[in-house]
Structure formats: structure tokens, C-alpha cells
Simulated scan of single mutants.
Amino acid sequence: MSLSRVFWYTLRRDILLAYRRRNDLVSPLAFFVMVASLFPLGVSPDPAFLSEVAAGVVWVAALLSTLLSMDSLFRSDFDDGSLEQMLLTPQPLALLVVAKVLAHWLVSGFPLIVLAPLLGVMLFLPDAGFGPLVLTLLLGTPTLSLIGAIGAALTVGLRKGGVLITLLVLPLYIPVLIFGTGAVMAAANGLAIGGYLAILGAILALGLVLAPLAIAAALRISVSN
């Protein structure tokens, strides 16, 4: 079987399984909306204040929602033995990992991008910030999934892996958060954002090259132990 067909079958399988576990799909999206909705109630409903912090609130909510969904990335495969079969297959494990991470992003990361403009309207995000918000999330959320998958792979055999994933990957999320939020704020102030987008794109490219190898190695370590 060709590598492209293996990639497609793995991607299709994970998407179908994700839609059968609809609770896992709805929970991160509900959490994303709740965090952004509760912020004005807990801090200040003033439109001027919210317009200044809207980008940061949406990005933090997206980051936390991604963390919430990471624990289930390899958990079901580990529980039913599918993960061990993946390790034994002659196909490159890194390729299978990329397909699984892509499926995770399609069912959990991409919906966040779709909902983000609605939350931007609720938080009085300036009109100039909507386009950059979508672009930064489009570049940043795949990176969050790739980094989070490393933590999920390292903790897949542990019962309380969700807490450890947060401790492991949250510091690595900070550069993406800084440049993603900075781009939106710069656009809202009429400044150029090309540099921010270039850095986010470079981080994503680096993650696409290195993260699958790290995830594959982490899975081998976790399953062998």
C-alpha cells in the first residue's frame, strides 16, 4: 500500500472515530466559548477595555481548549491496542502520527478558527483585527496540536496524563501565544503584521519537520514502558 493511501486511511479513520465520540468534540468548543464569554463578566464589560484585550482572550481560550482535547489524541488507541499495532506496522510511524494530528486539528482546531470571529464581535475586537485573528489562528493552532501531541505521546500510558500534558507543553505554547496576539494587536493599531505571520509560519514549518519525529519516539518510549 502506498504511503499516501496509508495517510488517507489513517486520517479518515480518526475523523470517523472522533465524530462517534461527540462529547470529545463538543467539550473543547464549549470550553472555548465559555472562557471568552465569562471574561467580560469577571473583569469588565466596558467595550473600550474589551477591544484592547479581545485578541489575548480569544488566543488564551483557543490555547486552553486545545490542551483540553489533547489527552484523548492517543488514549483510545492505547486502550484498545491499536497503538501497539501502529508501532509494529512497516509504515513510517511519523507519517501515521501526522495523519492523526491533522485529524485532531480538523475536528478540534479548525472549529475554533470558525468560532473566533463570533467571539471577536462579542469582545468588540476592532474591524482591522478580524482578518489577522483568523490568519494567526490558522497558522498557530496546527502548531499547538503538534506540540501538544508530543506531550500526549509522553503521557499516554499514565492515568492522569492530562495534568502532565499541561505542565509539559504549556511553556512551549508561549511563543505562539505571544506572536499570535501581537499580530492581531498590531493590525488593530494599523501596524504591519508581516513579521509576526512570518515567525508563526516558521514555527509551524519547524514543527511539521521535527514534531512527528519527536511524537513517534515518545510513543515508542511510552508503549515500551
Score class of each variant (00 low, 15 high):
S2D: 15
L3K: 13
V6S: 08
L11M: 04
L11N: 11
R13F: 11
L16H: 14
A18C: 07
R22E: 11
R22K: 14
S27M: 12
F32N: 12
V33F: 12
V33L: 14
V35L: 07
V35M: 03
S37V: 11
F39S: 02
V43N: 08
S44H: 03
P45R: 01
A48M: 07
F49Q: 12
S51M: 04
V53T: 13
G56E: 05
G56M: 08
V57R: 04
L63K: 03
S65H: 09
S82G: 15
E84C: 10
T89P: 00
T89L: 11
L96D: 05
V101A: 05
W105S: 12
W105L: 11
L106V: 13
S108I: 03
S108N: 14
G109E: 00
F110V: 08
I113W: 06
A116I: 02
L119Y: 01
G120S: 14
G120E: 08
M122Q: 10
F124H: 15
L125P: 03
F130W: 07
P132S: 00
L137W: 01
T143H: 05
L144G: 01
S145L: 08
L146P: 08
G148A: 05
T155M: 15
V163A: 12
I165E: 10
I174L: 13
F179P: 01
G182S: 06
M185W: 01
A187T: 00
I193M: 00
G194W: 11
G194C: 07
L197N: 02
L204N: 02
G207V: 00
V209F: 14
P212I: 00
I215W: 05
A216V: 05
L219G: 10
I221K: 09
I221G: 03
I221F: 11
